[in-house]
Amino acid sequence: MTPLAGCLLVSSLLFSVGLAGALTRRNAILVLAGIELMLNAANLNFIAFWRFGPHPEFLTGFMFVIFSIAVAAAEAAVGLALILAIYRHARTSDVSEITEMKG
């Protein structure tokens, strides 16, 4: 197996683990953690294609990962703030108990 295929397989496994966590866990924080894992799997794909692709000197995939990490930081901050706001309102962070949008 080539290194590129190895990277892609690891990344697809990581994506599936994150997806399983986001779909099965009850706590909203862990759902967010699963989404972060999926985002990281995509980042690993970008790095792998940049490393083993035809033109690594253009730094395309590399820059995409840098910007994607910045977007993930913003996403995590806003997501956790939303979870805190929902917790203050509904006194739970269990996604299967938060069933109404109108307070």
């Binding site: 599936s16 997806l19 099965t24 866990r25």
Partner: peptide, 15 residues
């Protein structure tokens, strides 16, 4: 109760 009721379906979907 750490896993949601639809947990099996979610795990199968991820698989």
């Amino acid at each position: 109760k750490v896993f949601s009721p639809a947990g099996i379906a979610g795990a199968l979907l991820a698989l």
